[in-house]
Amino acid sequence: MTNSENQNILNICFNQDSSCFAYSGNNGFTVYSCDPFRQSIKRLFNGGIGIVSMLFRCNVMAIVGGGENPEFSPNKVIIWDDHSQKSIGELSFRTQVKSVKLRRESIIIALEHRTYIYNFSDLKPRNTIDTRSNPNGIVSISIISNSSVVATLGMNKGIVRIEHYQLNKTHIVEAHDSEICCLNLSNNGKYLATASVLGTIIRIWDTYTGEKIQELRRGTEPATIYSLVFSQDNKYLACSSNTGTIHIFKLKTDRDRFSELYNLSKIKDNVDNSKSSLSLLKGYLPTYFSSEWSFVQYRTKHTKIFVSFGKQNNKLLLITDDGFFYKISIEFENNICKCVEEEQYKFS
């Protein structure tokens, strides 16, 4: 997230496993642990930090200058060692850096018209991907070590490019008719969620085949989607938008017993997405009537929210651009699913 309405927060994001989050502003950056909620790092600078990207809970992170008085050039990615509190490397570009993603072995950097992939160990380039105009730095990566998948914008409107580096395979997906607004890979890179600038429809793709496996409806009115997040076992998807409502969907994925093995599935298995009573007439009525809707929602007073799952499927974490953190529990009572606020903190 960039260009927040709150001038004290220029960027805010979870780390890869959502065990903590970082926000940056006009005089530095701060890192908070999520469970328990507490401030773990605070670094002050004379200038602004526009992007801070963490690598799990490692002391090495990537930062980019930002704001009215940047601490570093917005055209540079600074590799920051927080243990020694100094830069240990940098990558420079001719244009502004829009976003940075980290894996243990690589750094992915999105500029407006190009995405670069570098080795983390020696900062040498590995690949370059040309994209459509990408002012928001839309890019996603898988995070587990045995899967190296990158999803970027394609060269044309509504197109997504999926790179499977270990399989040496590329898929070009015609995801939407309108411009892409948000996309995100599952942790293992097997699934991709996409949404367009209309924000009404979310599509789920199999990255190994490039085929669509599910279509979900957030709503009927346009909205700006800020996050699409898979649960750790890929059984559920959470979505946040400028409407202030969090939507949770059940997914049609193979699930491969990951949930049972790690005791993640605290949501009853018989839950299902909502559908129109006319869905049986699919093929005869407009697609609206056969859409799958979220099985539970949580409404907030905020308009820019980023959501993630906690360690278990029935726990949600929310961070907002006006400086609030929430822990939400998904609960069943009398066969009704609902979201309940457990904790709330003001961090900025």
Rank of each mutant, 00 (worst) to 15 (best):
T2E: 06
T2M: 12
Q7Y: 11
L10D: 04
N11Y: 13
C13N: 13
C13V: 13
C20L: 13
C20Q: 11
T30S: 12
F37H: 00
N46Y: 08
F56Q: 09
F56T: 03
F56S: 03
N59I: 09
G65W: 11
G67N: 07
P74F: 12
K76V: 05
W80K: 01
K86N: 12
S87W: 04
T95V: 12
T95Q: 07
Q96I: 09
V97H: 12
V97T: 10
K98A: 13
R103T: 04
R103D: 07
I108C: 11
I108E: 00
I108Y: 01
A110M: 04
H113W: 07
T115C: 05
Y116G: 05
Y116S: 14
N119K: 08
S121H: 09
L123Y: 13
K124P: 10
P125T: 08
I129G: 01
D130I: 05
N134A: 05
P135T: 08
N136E: 13
G137I: 04
S140C: 10
S142M: 00
N146M: 10
N146I: 10
S147Y: 01
S148D: 06
V149S: 00
V149M: 03
V150T: 09
A151L: 05
T152Y: 02
G154Q: 03
G154T: 13
M155I: 05
N156A: 08
I159G: 03
V160W: 06
H171W: 02
I172D: 03
E174M: 14
E174Q: 14
H176F: 13
G189D: 00
V197K: 02
V197Y: 06
I201L: 14
T207R: 07
Q214A: 15
L216I: 14
L216M: 03
R217N: 12
P222F: 08
P222C: 11
T224V: 15
I225C: 11
Y226W: 13
Y226V: 12
N234P: 14
N234G: 10
K235A: 14
K235Q: 14
K235P: 05
K235H: 13
L237V: 13
C239T: 15
S241V: 10
T243I: 15
T243H: 15
G244M: 11
T245G: 15
F249R: 03
F249D: 06
K250I: 02
D256W: 06
L261W: 11
L261Q: 03
L261K: 07
L264W: 08
K268C: 13
N270H: 08
V271N: 11
K275W: 07
S276D: 05
S276F: 04
L281P: 04
L285W: 07
L285P: 08
Y288T: 06
S290W: 06
E292Q: 05
S294L: 09
F295A: 00
K301E: 09
F306Y: 15
S308C: 08
N313T: 10
K315Y: 01
L316F: 00
L317M: 08
Y326D: 04
F332T: 08
F332C: 11
E333P: 02
N335E: 06
K338L: 09
C339N: 06
C339I: 12
V340F: 12
E341P: 09
